[in-house]
């Protein structure tokens, strides 16, 4: 660790006139209570330090994963859209565009447990029990063909699991491997030929608002406003009484949506828009949410979220709205769609 000691020498001089002199302890703060430390200190290290007691099976993990993780990571941990893939990618690290997953890349299993337990699921972190976490991690191992389907992961056998890429890392060696970068730079006749070998404009992946200073965005606004004004006024039919049982079922199904969508008084737009008061309302109209082009156009044309459109969208989101931002694969059961529609009605009143 002495490698950067010599590098901070230059900073010392500047530090002399700004660093306060420390006169021992200030007596500030208070003692942390054991239960406070227990509540926050949940990190898990590679040697198992910090691992809670417990266990979970691949079988249980499969169910839990499907309920809480698959919306982003896919049923088989294969990843949805741009969300992380957690499985596959073995033997790709030395190829172009390696696929880095828990199985192909992560050197320590403790990292997977620590992260799932502390920071997942996205939008509902710290909600998984130790046993649930063991089960989900077991399922991720299974998805990577690292354990069999009858495997049970526990605090007892945790350190026995071998991670394929455990030896795939070296500590930063730039000061040795890149020693030639400490040099005297060339000032003239440094090369004979300068030819363009690649152009960003040819690839054309830069956002088109990339700062053409002559066309500030304000000039585009009136056009959009006009479009909205032309759209037909909303018609809200009188609604029938709600089926409370169906609403309750829908609320359960809605758990799948919660990672991205909020409802209720304090709801905010997150990965997806707020879903208060969308039933029978025009598509793509939640304030402050940036919809996909297609969805915005559907709304501009006056389409509304009636039962039929909701059902079509929820069964096959990408088929109904080409280019939708929603990564959800869709609800397979008609009963779930009916339930969630009723639930969305209930939060639309």
């Amino acid at each position: 660790m002495s490698k950067y000691r010599k590098l901070v020498v230059g900073a010392t001089l500047a530090a002399i006139f700004a660093t306060p002199a420390l006169a021992g302890k200030m007596g500030l703060g208070r003692a942390a209570l054991p239960e406070e430390i227990a509540a926050w200190d949940v990190d898990v290290s590679p040697d198992g330090t910090g691992l809670p007691e417990g266990s979970g099976s691949v079988e249980d993990g499969e169910m839990l994963f499907s309920e809480t993780c698959a919306v982003c990571h896919g049923e088989f941990a294969e990843g949805v859209d741009n969300w992380p893939k957690l499985a596959g990618g073995r033997d790709t690290l030395n190829r172009k565009d390696p696929l880095k997953t828990v199985g192909s890349y992560w050197p320590y299993l403790s990292t997977a447990f620590d992260y799932v337990h502390r920071s997942m699921p996205f939008g509902n972190a710290q909600s998984l029990s130790a046993n649930d976490t063991y089960a989900i991690v077991a399922y991720i191992l299974y998805s990577n063909d690292l354990v069999d389907d009858d495997f049970v992961l526990s605090s007892e056998n945790f350190l026995e699991v071998e991670m394929p890429n455990a030896d795939g890392f070296i500590v930063d060696d730039r000061e040795v491997a890149e020693k030639s970068f400490w040099t005297t730079p060339c000032m003239s006749d440094c090369k004979t030929d300068v030819k363009i070998t690649m152009r960003a404009a040819v690839l054309d992946v830069t956002p088109d608002h990339s700062g053409d200073e002559t066309a500030p965005e304000a000039t585009k606004e009136p056009e959009k406003q006009q479009k909205e004004a032309e759209a037909p006024a909303e018609v809200r039919p009188t609604m029938a009484a709600l089926d409370e049982d169906l609403v309750a079922k829908g609320e359960k199904v809605f758990k799948k949506c919660k990672a991205c969508h909020q409802v209720g008084d304090s709801a905010k737009n997150k990965t997806g828009p707020i879903l208060n008061d969308i039933h029978d309302r025009r598509i793509g109209m939640v304030d402050g949410f940036k919809y996909s082009k297609t969805m915005a156009e559907m709304g501009a044309e006056g389409m509304i979220w009636d039962d039929a459109n909701l059902a079509a969208f929820l069964s096959k989101p990408k088929a109904f709205v080409k280019g939708t931002k929603m990564s959800f694969a869709g609800l397979k059961k008609d009963a779930d769609i009916a339930a969630i529609t009723e639930y969305l009605k209930s939060v639309s009143r």
Binding site: D43, V44, S45, P46, L93, N94, P98, K100, V102, Y105, W106, P107, Y108, S110, T111, D114, Y115, S119, G168, F169, I170, V171, D172, D173, R174
Partner: peptide, 22 residues
């Protein structure tokens, strides 16, 4: 700790498939 942000991310994979950490 070898957390997610110091193993699965923020590590630099070299051409031979080995990765630099830290």
């Amino acid at each position: 700790v070898q957390s997610r942000e110091e193993t699965s991310k923020y590590t630099d994979t070299l051409e031979n498939g080995t990765s630099r950490k830290w």
